[in-house]
Amino acid sequence: MVRFQRGEVIERREMLHGDLWLTTPVTVVDDDGDRLAVRLDPGSAFTFPPHPFGAHPWAHQSHWGASIVLQLYRSGDLYSVWKLFEPDGAFRHWYLNFEAPMGRGPGHIDTGDYGLDLIVDASGRRQWKDVTDLHHQRVEGRITAQTALDVLAEAARVEAALDADDRWWAPWDDWSPEPAA
């Protein structure tokens, strides 16, 4: 199994139907072989290789915006957990991004966005985002009907875990980005 070293810059690759659709560099914060933490920094460049499906929805953007993001992945999950910060390092909110389970390769991780997201603010209040994207992605042929059902089942499990205050990412509650030099 591929494991990454703290401080290593790797590519986060978004795949669609087995083909590369988007890449961006991220920096490894921690990797225990099962759980991976990477940091996405403001201004990180996006690359959009030509894809048989067409342009990526973010193809009009050349880079990541102003927020600092700690992205947490756990092997086998249909989502990753993002901890977003303002450019000055102030915590903004948690963001659960439903996506294909992370795959690892030399110098990269692979996933694929399913469109459904859940925002959890500092008080624990939740807000579902892009709920209709699952339907649109299925209709457009980006995901199958079975994938949509799997994502909805995973979303129900995540909600039940949050209701029970069972968050595997809780050890990262106190993490914040180092101040800019």
Rank of each mutant, 00 (worst) to 15 (best):
R92I: 08
Y95K: 13
W94F: 05
P50T: 14
G65V: 14
V38H: 02
K129I: 08
L40R: 13
T132F: 01
G33R: 08
D110G: 11
E86W: 12
P49D: 00
G124T: 10
L116D: 02
G103N: 04
D133Q: 14
R125K: 15
A66S: 12
S44M: 06
A37Y: 03
D88W: 10
L96R: 12
H63M: 08
D31L: 09
K83A: 04
L78G: 11
P52K: 14
D34K: 15
G105W: 03
I109T: 15
G107R: 09
D121R: 15
W128P: 12
W64T: 06
V38Y: 02
L116E: 05
E86S: 12
S44I: 06
S75W: 08
P101E: 00
R125Q: 11
F91A: 11
L70P: 00
H135P: 00
D31G: 13
V120S: 07
D88Y: 09
G124Q: 11
D117W: 06
G54V: 07
Y79L: 14
P52T: 07
F46T: 09
A45L: 10
P101V: 08
Y73A: 06
Y73W: 15
F91T: 10
H93M: 07
N97D: 11
P42Y: 06
S123E: 04
A90W: 02
D31H: 11
R104K: 12
E86V: 13
G107E: 02
D32M: 13
A55M: 06
R125V: 09
R126C: 06
